[in-house]
Write a protein that binds this DNA or RNA. Sequence first.
DNA 1: AATGAATGAGCATTCATTCAT
DNA 2: CATGAATGAATGCTCATTCAT
Lengths: 202, 202, 202, 202
Amino acid sequence: MSPRTKEQIAQIRRESRQQILDAALLLFAQNGFHNTSISTIAKEANISKGLVYNYFESKDDLLRQIVETAMQIGDDFAGHLELDDQDPVQSVHQTIDDLFSMLEQNPTYWKLIISLSLKEDIMLRFKDQLKQQAQKNLAYLTNYFRQLQIPEPTNHAMLYAAALDGIFLHYIYAQDLYPLSDMKDFLKRSIASLLRQKIDDR
Amino acid sequence: MSPRTKEQIAQIRRESRQQILDAALLLFAQNGFHNTSISTIAKEANISKGLVYNYFESKDDLLRQIVETAMQIGDDFAGHLELDDQDPVQSVHQTIDDLFSMLEQNPTYWKLIISLSLKEDIMLRFKDQLKQQAQKNLAYLTNYFRQLQIPEPTNHAMLYAAALDGIFLHYIYAQDLYPLSDMKDFLKRSIASLLRQKIDDR
Amino acid sequence: MSPRTKEQIAQIRRESRQQILDAALLLFAQNGFHNTSISTIAKEANISKGLVYNYFESKDDLLRQIVETAMQIGDDFAGHLELDDQDPVQSVHQTIDDLFSMLEQNPTYWKLIISLSLKEDIMLRFKDQLKQQAQKNLAYLTNYFRQLQIPEPTNHAMLYAAALDGIFLHYIYAQDLYPLSDMKDFLKRSIASLLRQKIDDR
Amino acid sequence: MSPRTKEQIAQIRRESRQQILDAALLLFAQNGFHNTSISTIAKEANISKGLVYNYFESKDDLLRQIVETAMQIGDDFAGHLELDDQDPVQSVHQTIDDLFSMLEQNPTYWKLIISLSLKEDIMLRFKDQLKQQAQKNLAYLTNYFRQLQIPEPTNHAMLYAAALDGIFLHYIYAQDLYPLSDMKDFLKRSIASLLRQKIDDR
DNA sequence: AATGAATGAGCATTCATTCAT
DNA sequence: CATGAATGAATGCTCATTCAT
């Protein structure tokens, strides 16, 4: 009877919205966007079909907001990329740790994102943003290799960027069977060995 | 007057079938499986909707046959992988050349395949086959590194396999903007440098 | 304002469901199952095509439920068949009255059922049930003739069972032109005459 | 090379036509009209799809001609019905034998016909013809009972006509399990007993 | 805010029929 | 006479979306 306060309503809205987003993410990643109906999402989120449209304009909009969150995370990550000139090696190790941890914390999420990243129609609007992120990440790596005076810093950066995405792809595909931790360590050692090699080159 | 000969019919069937496959491949890769209707495929192939079903049992079957062709190519590739003990370096260079050439010759094709490889429902039936291919490729690389007495051959193999797939992913995504040739050359040089490094290590 | 109550919804569902069943029954009986499209049923029921699937899983399911209702009625009828030993003649007269009344009350229904009973594919799942009903009815009649010490009770039962179904067939076919009442009376008299005949035989 | 003679061609046409009719009858009776495609009929008849249209205007026409043949048989049967005044009992026994033999010789055929006889759309054009046949048959029976001075000849005729159709229905439904011969004999005895009864009534 | 009945556009698939050979 | 590739209308069914309550 007693009417809910503004704050209570806002709280309910926030929670319902998140429930929908969580359910949608899970189902999209699991069964694909087209094989997931609004009905199923509503069921998974324990709400009614109609309510979804109270929070999202359309199914496309729902997807868009999920991707946007991912892009935001990616932007944040790229935004914080800054090479500590005092200790570039440690800095890159930290970056790698962060990256892998991000992946491990929510593989479902990134599975969906990578899967989507190949869908032209959906990613069209995010293409620029994605390109910028890639650019930033590449610049960071290039800068790193250049500072350590490793030859062909751009090529090295591109190769390691590819290796990173490749590892992610393989991890997403093989999931628990993939030795993600081992690869992370080996990646670090591989980069470290580049340094040694350079020194030896002298 | 008289009906067409067996050979004439076979010829007609071969051509129509290929037209459909080509149209479907193009559209699936461009717009995704679910965003491509049989109607659209028929229009692109300049035939009627109904005729598609004269050649393929269903839309799923059409996709399956496209993927099967790809898997066949992959199987053939993996099947021919054999390290020439006399000249392992040259052998691997050749393999890399072949791989990149395969990609460059039909990027649309591989774009679709990679895109599909993340769709559980569609790839379910190909999962084992795919795993075997990956296994073979990995074994080939591991064997290579081991023969050249490079330390941690398995890790190196996995890293380079990831790098390869990452490069492919980036190429597919950026298409013409991606310096695929440069990366190929650099990849070779990178592997070559491993050898030098090993020798230096002594 | 607030959503409908459970009871309101149940009421709406009951009504819509019945509307669909009625429309489907009418059209199936009139034009046959295959010549009746879901679209037509929806139009007849004054609802949209899609709504049909809110109540029935498929067109087949819709038919199945119609037939199931009929089978239920038949089961109930066969279930209540019990010969009153005190007055078997009256008991059978009552049964005949019930049977004819069932037919007259909803000829459309039984027309559909008889028509369907010859469609192997549709009736496959009901075959056992139907056979049991026939068995029960036959046993009832046989028992009746045996109790009245009429010779060849099984043959008499089978003949009268055939006569009954034949009358129904003719009635369904000729509808209003068929003297159903007259046949009912004559049927009773015919059976009665069997009794007299037996007595005369002595 | 040598051109076929007119007669040869006519012969071929007759045979092909019959092959199609046979195949269609079999499949219609087995799977129903709507569940039988022209393609399947052609396959069963070992000819090409297109050829069917060389002999029949349409699928409906094919059915129509099948039914027409049946109607013709029925007409012939009804046409030959003539009560031998010298020996009406024997005459009716003969008729019953002929009727049952017709059924036993080609149950598939009559199964289809009975099944179709309830399909308004298909039988519309045959309704009058069918009604006339029924009329004739009824007249024959009525005449028989009247000649034998059995009371209520029309009612008796209708009852036995119904019994006959009921027996046919049951036979078609239960096929091999049905004691058709027994019922035929019992039917005859039942009619014979009517005569005795009448005599006893005096 | 919440519900779920109702709508209708869209799509895969079937199949009678045509027609070039 | 004979073939089967080709067509396209028809139909069952799904599902995003709307809306009365």
